[in-house]
Amino acid sequence: MSKPKIAFFDFTSCEGCQLNKLNLENDLLDLLELVDIVEFREAMDDKADEYDIAFIEGSISTPTCITRIHDIRRRTKILVALGACAVQGGINAIKNQHSADWVKETVYGEDKYLFPSIPVQPISAVVKVDYEVRGCPMSTPEFLHVLKSLILNRKPEIFDHAVCVECKLKENECVLDKGMFCLGPITRAGCDAICPTFGQYCTGCRGVVSNINKNGAVEMLKQHGFSTKEALNRMKMFCTLELE
């Protein structure tokens, strides 16, 4: 691929993933050598009709989202979902845990009829997603890995093991050991265990590993002093749809 045309689009999200790219700083200039950025609302006004790679941030939450994502899918060769909202519905999907009416009422009050809102879906529920970059915000090293891979025309290497693996490779003191909550044992790696490395706990933003032992995870957290209710609530923060 010679200088692929890439574009960034945002759906229902905080746009933090896109800002994260602007934070690449040193790498950003090298990056611009490799690709032609043709659409990026956070940083430029240009528009284009066709793309080699479309990066999608955010989840599907309105009927308009569906029309728009179909349109993008038609115009791009490769579609990559960026961040928790796009990949697994993310925080937005918490609303699916409640009745649609109650949600609308709570958010918009009397004007609720003016806002068409549908249950939150990840991008992959509507169109084919070729690759995913997980995390809230998405992990920038993983984003670069995916981008470099696509430029080389190779499949990116995406892990399906727990954050614990990366955390142990860094020889961090275990967060659960310190009495804190942590979802590292069941959350997908790829973030280089950044939160535990800086003394925070893993919130599970990257979604759960496949074939997860959900009951085991709840029992595990119980042993560390967290009730079933609290464990499930925290697990559902980013993974409502994955844990259904």
């Binding site: 727990a162 614990c164 032992n213 085991g216």
Partner: peptide, 14 residues
């Protein structure tokens, strides 16, 4: 064991 284990791999890595 499988009931309790979450497959995090800590035992292997350490």
């Amino acid at each position: 064991v499988a009931q309790k284990c979450v497959g995090c791999g800590t035992c292997n890595l350490l």
